[in-house]
C-alpha cells in the first residue's frame, strides 16, 4: 500500500492536522475548545478513512462521533461548566504531569523502534503495483451512471457486519441498550424522579 500524488499530499496535511489538533485537545484550557479540536481530529480521521477506501466507516465516524458523541460531550461540558477555568484560576494538570509526559514520550520512541523491522521489510507488493498501474483498486468498481468510479465498501462492510459478525452486532446493540438505560439512570437526578412519581 502506497499513496501517490495528491493522496500523499492530503495524507500529510491530514496527519499533521490530526496530530496538532490531538495535542490541542490535551492541552486546551477550556473544555469546549478541547471538544472543538477533538471534532476536528475526528473529521481528519474520517477523511483518512476515506483515503483508506473505508467510506462507510468514515460516514459512521462522522455520524456517530461528531453528530452524536461530541454533541453529548458539549452538552455535558455546558451542564458542568465552571467559570473558574476560564478565569485561569484552575490548575489544568495533575502533579504527575511531567512524569506522564516523559513516559508518553518514551512510549512513542519505543513504538518507533518496535516498528523498525517492519520498516526494513516493507516493499510495495507486486500485485499492488500492477493494480495501481491498471488504475483500479480491487475494492473499486466502475459504475455506468455517472461514469465515475464508486467504491463497493458499503456493500462489503454490510455483508460482513450482518453475515459474519451478526452475533457481535446483536451483542453491541444490547450493550447500547444497557448503556442508554444506565446513562439515563445515572444522569437522572432525584428531582426528576420525584417529578415522574
Amino acid at each position: 500500500m502506497q499513496l501517490h500524488g495528491w493522496e500523499a499530499v492530503i495524507f500529510y496535511v491530514l496527519a499533521i492536522g490530526t496530530l496538532f489538533m490531538g495535542v490541542y485537545v490535551v492541552t486546551a484550557r477550556l473544555a469546549v475548545h478541547s471538544a472543538l479540536c477533538l471534532i476536528a481530529t475526528l473529521v481528519n480521521v474520517a477523511l483518512l478513512f476515506i483515503l483508506l477506501r473505508s467510506e462507510f466507516v468514515a460516514g459512521v465516524q462522522i455520524l456517530v462521533y461528531v453528530g452524536g458523541v461530541m454533541v453529548l460531550f458539549l452538552f455535558v461540558i455546558m451542564l458542568v461548566q465552571t467559570r473558574a477555568e476560564e478565569e485561569d484560576k484552575v490548575k489544568l494538570y495533575t502533579r504527575q504531569m511531567w512524569p506522564a509526559v516523559t513516559v508518553a514520550f518514551l512510549l512513542a520512541i519505543s513504538f518507533f523502534f518496535a516498528m523498525q523491522p517492519a520498516q526494513m521489510a516493507y516493499r510495495p507488493s507486486q500485485s499492488q503495483t500492477e493494480a495501481e498501474k491498471k488504475g483500479d483498486d480491487p475494492g473499486v468498481r466502475s459504475e455506468s451512471g455517472a461514469g465515475l468510479k464508486v467504491s463497493t465498501d458499503t456493500e462489503s462492510v454490510g455483508e460482513a457486519l450482518y453475515r459474519q459478525a451478526a452475533l457481535p452486532f446483536e451483542i453491541a446493540s444490547l450493550l447500547l441498550l444497557v448503556a442508554i438505560v444506565g446513562a439515563v439512570l445515572l444522569a437522572r437526578g432525584s428531582k426528576q424522579e420525584k417529578l415522574y412519581e
Partner: peptide, 30 residues
C-alpha cells in the same frame, strides 16, 4: 448534473447535516 455520486450518499447527508448541531451549540455557548 450531479456533482459527486458517493456510494455512501445518504449516510453522508445524514452525517454532515448532523454536524450542523455543533454550530448551534457552540454559538450558544460562545
Amino acid at each position: 448534473a450531479t456533482i459527486a455520486n458517493v456510494n455512501i450518499g445518504l449516510l453522508f447527508v445524514l452525517a454532515v447535516s448532523s454536524v450542523s448541531v455543533l454550530g448551534l451549540v457552540l454559538a450558544g455557548w460562545s
